[in-house]
Write a protein that binds this DNA or RNA. Sequence first.
DNA 1: CTGAAAGCGCTAACAG
DNA 2: CTGTTAGCGCTTTCAG
Lengths: 338, 338
Amino acid sequence: MVGITDVARRAGVSPSTVSYALSGKRPISKETRQRVEAAIRELGYRPHAGARALASSKSNVLALVVPLRAGIHVPVVMQFAVSVVTAARRHDHDVLLLTQEEGEEGLRRVAETALVDALVVMDVQLHDPRLPLLRNLDRPSVLIGFPAEPSGLTCIDLDFRAAGEACVDHLARLGHRVVALVGSPPEVYVRQTAFAQRVVQGFTAAADRAGLSCRVHPCEAAPGAARAIAERLLREQPALTGVVVHNEPLLEPLIDAFEQLGLRVPGDLSVTAICPDELAASLRVPVTSVAIPSAEVGERAVELLMAKLDGGGTDVPEATLLPPRLTERASTAPRDAP
Amino acid sequence: MVGITDVARRAGVSPSTVSYALSGKRPISKETRQRVEAAIRELGYRPHAGARALASSKSNVLALVVPLRAGIHVPVVMQFAVSVVTAARRHDHDVLLLTQEEGEEGLRRVAETALVDALVVMDVQLHDPRLPLLRNLDRPSVLIGFPAEPSGLTCIDLDFRAAGEACVDHLARLGHRVVALVGSPPEVYVRQTAFAQRVVQGFTAAADRAGLSCRVHPCEAAPGAARAIAERLLREQPALTGVVVHNEPLLEPLIDAFEQLGLRVPGDLSVTAICPDELAASLRVPVTSVAIPSAEVGERAVELLMAKLDGGGTDVPEATLLPPRLTERASTAPRDAP
DNA sequence: CTGAAAGCGCTAACAG
DNA sequence: CTGTTAGCGCTTTCAG
């Protein structure tokens, strides 16, 4: 194995100079640097990650905890993970993948063995059991999602409340007076995942504010569910003309179901969704939607972590709520004059 | 920070004894072990990962390279990743997540810095540029998928050829005489991803053997694609009664399209798929399918890696082809008597 | 701007 | 069955 001393010898300098040339932590004359770089190249030198971690107390690895639970749209998780890895690499960090299953012990393990320098935790619940641990860990973390009591933690997410509002506002502006929310599966609410609830709050608040009649339906994404929910919506709200869908797998079948029931989208019914842009744009009827910006959230999460790692934690905001971005597509239209 | 010497002092033993008590690499008397364990518990000791890696030249971390390319079904990748993590944890290893994007340099980096002990590489192409590198790396690897020349590498995958055959055999046994394969998007074939081609080979071979008329259609998963391909199939093969689908996103819309064209499934048309069981089982018409056993592949991949890591590499099979498992569901039926 | 040298915390001979 | 000790390869004072 070729080590730093081999490089030093070949370049005619001391090991510390090689180290500093690599880290840039102190000025190195141009010629020295070039000799070092040449030696590194010629020998194919790679610093040993473990040795580095031991000597510097920095592993340059981040932990990413991904959820496995039911009712979570897998492509969003994956896209998020990829963006975290990509962003981390830009900051010269790698990413260790942990599953939710590992629980608190998993977090504690990777943090306390110094395997990772910091943690990104997805799918945070309102009263997440991991919160006390994350507060006390000696390494910084960023949570994706907001728990009930976020103080002392760094959290980031789409502003789901505002997203719910944005959808309703859009429908209200188009003249719709009776709207419904088709939400995530019931288990997501039972688990008290904050984002689902926040959409409901925003939806309801905006509807009240605009004087709209509204209802909320948590909804499974089972085979026959789309048809059933479509019929139920129309039965319960015969004057329904606006629907907000916050349930990725159900979006396409639901639109199909409406059309099979004789309702044209957007002719008779306007549909908006909260979902990834790619999904909304790829449907037969491209859907007006508020994007779930997984890639941006992942990227920002890593930036926050990096700021905490080298800023010491000062001036890193505790809460980052990304404002919703609504894109109009073909699924919404003004309500017919009454 | 509490180190191994603190534990040793507290337990009244030497550091090496603590180390051996932890690793089990040499016999420790029961009483000593208990004193050590008590000390560890009382002090909340955690061995430092970097120090361990440096001293033992083992990081206990595996690299997992995931694909990002178009035409790859994301849930399969995710499920696979999760099963790799889970299996790795059972063997006391962690998993570092790399994206395809990092390419050869990424593999080289994590291997040569000793960040990881071994690698799992997904989505291997027939003439994958990473193959020479993987052959020469000093750390073992397992490939998911088979390149054109797998010798000297350890590969594992579903036997896609046999899967294609199994679907055709099933249809043939039910009396179908004219069949079609709706395959992966064209880019998957162009990239020469082996599995897509192998399905075609198996499909064609089995059809020839059984004397069936057959055609193959690579197919995008775009919004209108399902309807278009359905119409095209019926135009080109008016007597078509059996379809094999190897394209997850298209499966459901394709069945819908057939039914909209007036063909009942399985009354007029039998459909089988090669896809994850969860997908096949969750459709309105549960589909007879050969499962893509992502979880099993991930698990087996890790077992192979572990065998190579501690077995020295001997007696680890180079090729592991998982036999297809076809589950009959509601989408296939005997062909009507002519 | 550069070098010397002391560890970082653990493992694994070697010695008993 | 247990202890002593020499590193593992790098970073970072301290000195110049």
